[in-house]
Structure formats: C-alpha cells, structure tokens
Design a protein around this nucleic acid. Sequence first.
DNA 1: TTCCAGGAGAGAG
DNA 2: CTCTCTCATGGA
Length: 306
Amino acid sequence: MQIQDATDFSLKYTLESGQSFRWNRIDDAYYGVVEGRILKICQVGTTLRVESSAAEDRTTFIPFLQHYLDLRRDVPEILTEVNNDAYMHRTIEKLWGMRILNQELWETVASFILSQNNNVSRIRGIIHRLSERFGEQLTFGRYMDYSFPSPEALAITTEDELLACGVGYRASYLREAAEAVVSGELALTAMKEMAYPEAKRELMRRKGIGEKVADCICLFSLGHLAALPIDVWIKRIFETLYLRRRATYHEIREFAHAYFGDRVGYAQQYLFHYVHECPDWANAEHLSLIETSAPAAVEHRKSTAN
DNA sequence: TTCCAGGAGAGAG
DNA sequence: CTCTCTCATGGA
C-alpha cells in the first residue's frame, strides 16, 4: 500500500528521534511493531510504501497510518511558529519533516515508565525482551518480532520474571501500572478524551510516573503538543542556549511555554533530537562558535510579551 | 573504576 | 517549596 502525498515528512527523523523504541532500519526500510502487526515502511520522496504482516483494509489502514505518523497535521505551520531564533532555525533545517507520533497508549505508558534514569539503547533492549517473553510472535517474511505485552500479561508476572528482562528497580512500577489498567483504576480509554492537564494529573497518580514521564505520554501518544518533557538534555539546552544560567524545571517550563507557545512539544522534539545528532552542540565551548541572535530573541519576546 | 542515561520516590530542612 | 539520597543495569 502507498501513501503518495507525504509532504514535509521525514520517516527517518520521525522514527529515529527517541519517541518510539520499536523501529529497526534495514537498508532503506524501517521495520517495526505497531499495535499487533509488523509494519515495513520505505520512503521515496513524498511517497511511503507500506507493507503489513496483517491483512489490512485500505479504508481503515490508511487513516490509521496517517494518524500514527501525524501526517495530517500542518507541521510546516508549527515550525514557522517556533522558528524563533538561529538555534531553532538550525534544528528545523536539519530535521525538516520530523513529526511527533501518535502511539498506542498502553505501550507508551509502559515504555516511558521504563525510560526513567535509563538510556535509549537499553530501553529498546528491555522492551524487546519483555515483548519476546510476554508478547506474541509475529512474522513478516524473514523478519520476526513480538507484539508489545498486554496489561493483562504484565499484571500476572512475577518480579523475578521482569528483573530477568532487565527492567531493574522499575519492575514494581511496571507491574502496578499493568494491574491498574486491568482493574480499571487507570482508565486509558477515558484518558484519551481528557484535556492535557487532566490526563497528565491522572497519569501522575501512578507510582513511577512523574512530571517528565507523564509529559512524554501526553506528547507521544495523546497528541497534547503543549506537553513539554524536560529530561537532562532539554534542561541542559535551555540552561545553556536560552536562559544562560542554572534554572529549575519550573523556570524552564515557564520560559519555554512563553517563548514557543502552546505547541512547545514540537519545538522540544527538534531540540532533543538535534542535540543527539550533534552532541557537542549545547556545550559551552561550542556555544561561542554559533553565537547568534538567540539572546536578542529572548529579550525581544520578553519585552513584547506584555 | 566511575560515570551516565528521555527520573521518580522518600525524607529532611 | 527545594535539596539529597537511592534505586538496577550495562555501555562507555
């Protein structure tokens, strides 16, 4: 199946920017597990060639893909809105077409519970082992993978089984979240109807979900573009490039929302992925090499805010 | 060997 | 409210 009009879209940056932990690139194609089937996606220009391990009905599959990849959103308009300074200009130029996925809610909740105090490659390994152990096997040609474990499957595991997958001290967080979904105490379907503040507050009632993980779930699954996950990288970027001093999470949040507006989540994702592609970028010694209009832009925004 | 990673909970002040 | 300590794990 094909999607012909994927304009202003980059499959590579969308799938490699740390939002999803389930995609693998083999040659020029991406293989991943999405909601119980293996997908193979290949981008040539503005055309996406998509194959599925399942029998798909075109009338539902195409809209499903468009939603998952956020293809129907006017991303150029958002990027124009957040293109406030030379730093953002550089990230947008480099990562043009990167979009924020709309991923399945339970998988996103569980994945980002596992993400705390952890790194992307380890998170990917843990999720793979959990899926191998508690998910269902899927095949597509020679490619094999496993569906993400259901809440029911994870709710009845033992701590030792989870530890064997490498989840570490997050084992109880994961299992308790799964139990809460099974019992209905954590109502995922209802959460999809909630506004951002309500959804975030509900998520943060769970042990192991703090403000940052809740924002990741709100942004990467629920489509709340006002969500701003502040991890150590984003904190470093705002302290180094924008505020130019040590700052609390609260100060960064206040500044970023005022500076980038109500779709700050997109700006955040461009900054996050850019600094991973260019690790020296936010270092103080490199800062002098890219001296730009950013501080002036900050002052301008402040002075015109009122 | 120590440090770090898409942090959060618990306790102290 | 902010600071600090701890948590399991593996790669650098």
